[in-house]
Design a protein around this nucleic acid. Sequence first.
DNA 1: AAGATTATTAAATAAATATTTAACAATCTT
DNA 2: AAGATTGTTAAATATTTATTTAATAATCTT
Lengths: 183, 183
Amino acid sequence: MSESADKSRKKIEEAKDKVIGAIAETMDLYGVTPAAANLYATMYFKDQMTLDEMREELEMSKPSMSTSVRKLQEIDMVKKTYTRGSRKHTYAAEKNFFRSFMVFYCQMWEREVNTNLEAIEEAQEDLINVIKDSASTPDVVAEAKKYYDQLEESKTYYRWLEDLVASIRSGKIFEYLPKREQD
Amino acid sequence: MSESADKSRKKIEEAKDKVIGAIAETMDLYGVTPAAANLYATMYFKDQMTLDEMREELEMSKPSMSTSVRKLQEIDMVKKTYTRGSRKHTYAAEKNFFRSFMVFYCQMWEREVNTNLEAIEEAQEDLINVIKDSASTPDVVAEAKKYYDQLEESKTYYRWLEDLVASIRSGKIFEYLPKREQD
DNA sequence: AAGATTATTAAATAAATATTTAACAATCTT
DNA sequence: AAGATTGTTAAATATTTATTTAATAATCTT
């Protein structure tokens, strides 16, 4: 093989590495470890990989690859693939960023909505009891009312977030905000 | 003060604590430290606070409060307030979750778009050079083309994310996904 | 079923992050 | 301007989190 052909191969690797670096760098936003971030970014340019290939490519331990893969599977950024004839498990990166976006944020927002709405409902019940309690002094009742109203108002946000999740999950959001293929 | 009135006060505190716990728990999603998460959740039920009040309420050190406040200010979840007559600085929590949502996610997504699009542009230039290079073998050219196309397709996502940010920042998204005040 | 290969779990280590104590700088009051 | 109060920065400590090595479990082939 000629030297200039080698040079071309090397330039391709360089190009990939730029993108790999950028993706890995911004993936801390998705709450994954550096190992998982690097792994996903690497897999983004591969068809599929085995744990041993990952270990070799990233020069890390196999358990680290194993846990990283699992974490990435949880947020649907990596899928297990079935390759007959191979004893080793194979995995492929989700290359459609829209799908990753959907799964990750909807999961995250749903957790936030559920946790907080549940607490709010309980708190509001408590506050109503205070308000209704004849033993409560007027200033205490006023305070309870104030907090009750504040919580009630915040529910508008959580309802909106739920609607946003539904719109993304169903794909309806793309009717309003279309994907622009061209530049 | 009667004992039952005290009981009412205590129930209010309990109600608040439920919500404080939930907010603090979900705030790890926003990439803030536990101290900052607890602080924001606490401030959510206060008009404004000084650093010393924070330290006392959370039973933590003053520098910890100072750094937490700064971090929360960066994502616009806390604002400095001007209280004349007081030597101490006072701070207030942003209580409108829609605004917090906007600032936090737009900031985050914009960083992702900028970092990745920049890398993609550079990588695509490199790949074009390989494709145009007469010394590149056909299989190398094919590979370069494959990656080029993959990157090109991913840009659709980043453009969409930019549109989403613009729609949120301008408030236009609420025309499509309105805030529902009632239940 | 036995042996070999691969993947996962557990314990130990390493690295990164959060928090505190101590020192310093800035600001306000007199 | 001096002294006192408040806030921030720096260094040290503590805590948490990520990663590795070692051990175990599961899976596949013969």
